[in-house]
């Protein structure tokens, strides 16, 4: 684990989460939700740009944000599996955002006061953005969980399906600027009450799928990358 790897992970998480979320633009259940999710995706993309630019600078091999985003293959991406999972329905998108944004917010809070001043600058901005994302996801989780029979069924299925993937976010990494292992307890303390208020059952900690941090991804990830990278790869070096 080098400093480059640590920053790249943060950037890859934000980039892939942004790409998944952007799919909801023009597909969300309400017009205003199209705007909301597109805005959140834009925030995540902004974080990804700053983080990948910084990672490229640390590496010193001349790779800028575009090179890192568009010219790496599946095995070179180090995002957690959670953010790449397909959004089977709106409930999955909402619950995934609740889990991921809460994790990001806790992490950015700590990075914002850390020794790495560049990361602190990025995190200082992102911490406010992710707080807003957590609030948005919280409201929707409550509405879906404590809503109709169908919305509750879907929200519970989303929680059950995504919960195992949250463990990977908190795998120990003592060399990272902030070891994510220490964030699991504060994360659970924030997420559990939201699920409970939404009348959703908090799953037991059971299996823990992993692999994203070392480039072993799920089946849908190649399709996500294929779409994200298609224009850049078809027209390398093109400028607007």
């Amino acid at each position: 684990m080098t400093r480059f790897d640590s920053v790249l992970r943060l950037g890859d998480d934000a980039l892939v989460a942004a790409q998944r979320m952007a799919h909801w633009c023009a597909c969300a259940p309400q017009l205003e939700e199209d705007v909301a999710l597109a805005n959140i995706a834009l925030d995540l993309l902004g974080q990804a740009r700053a983080l990948l630019t910084y990672a490229g600078g640390i590496e010193g091999a001349g790779r800028d944000e575009d090179r890192l985003a568009y010219q790496r293959d599946e095995r070179e991406f180090t995002n957690a599996l959670l953010v790449e999972l397909p959004d089977a329905d709106f409930a999955v998108a909402v619950v995934k955002l609740l889990f991921f944004a809460t994790y990001q917010n806790l992490l950015y809070q700590r990075l914002a006061t850390g020794a790495d001043t560049t990361l602190a600058g990025i995190a200082g901005k992102a911490v406010k953005e992710t707080k807003y994302h957590v609030e948005h996801a919280t409201r929707w989780t409550l509405r879906l969980g404590d809503g109709t029979v169908e919305s509750r069924r879907r929200a519970q299925a989303a929680v059950d399906g995504l919960w195992p993937f949250t463990h990977e976010l908190f795998e120990p990494d003592p060399l990272a600027p902030v070891d994510p292992a220490g964030l699991r307890e504060p994360w659970a303390a924030l997420v559990r009450p939201v699920l409970t208020r939404a009348t959703l059952v908090v799953p037991d900690d059971d299996w823990r799928p992993t692999g994203g941090r070392v480039g072993l991804h799920t089946e849908g990830f190649g399709y996500l990358l294929g779409e994200m990278q298609s224009v850049h790869r078809a027209h390398p070096g093109a400028r607007w």
Partner: peptide
């Protein structure tokens, strides 16, 4: 259902009539 994080709730006055009887329609705008 309020925000668990918001510590300083406020509502803006209407920029046209200055009424403070205002309501948020969407948390994300243009």
């Amino acid at each position: 259902v309020g925000s668990p994080h918001r510590t300083r709730p406020h509502r803006p006055a209407c920029p046209r009539c200055r009424s403070v009887d205002t309501r948020e329609l969407a948390r994300f705008g243009s």
